[in-house]
């Protein structure tokens, strides 16, 4: 499964917190703003790089030293939540 970022979503940082903001054409399609925890921010940056699921899970495994199954579950949960809230589109 490949996800893309809804056009108009801006990733930004305030006081070390990563935040997504719905800007321009994304207004009204995704929540105004939400923060991401460290792992979610890492995964979001992978999506920004245009990586597919396999590459993202591999990167997550390497970054956090976790097994593939755990990484897959974490990515799946992250992507599902952000898709449901409108930040991600399923290709």
């Amino acid at each position: 499964m490949k996800y893309t970022i809804l056009p108009g979503i801006v990733r930004t940082e305030v006081c070390g917190e990563t935040m997504l903001v719905a800007c321009g054409s994304a207004r009204g399609k995704a929540p105004y703003a939400r923060t991401l925890n460290e792992t979610a921010a890492f995964l979001w940056k992978q999506l920004e790089l245009g990586r597919d699921e396999a590459a993202i899970i591999a990167a997550l495994t390497e970054e956090y030293g976790i097994d593939g199954q755990t990484a897959r579950a974490a990515y799946s949960s992250f992507a599902q939540k952000l898709k449901e809230s409108g930040y991600l589109l399923e290709e």
Partner: peptide, 17 residues
């Protein structure tokens, strides 16, 4: 961070803003 950000009353038209 998120709560206060939403109290800035701008249009969110551009990433620069």
């Amino acid at each position: 961070v998120a709560e206060l950000f939403m109290q800035f009353l701008f249009t969110r038209s551009t990433p620069l803003d």
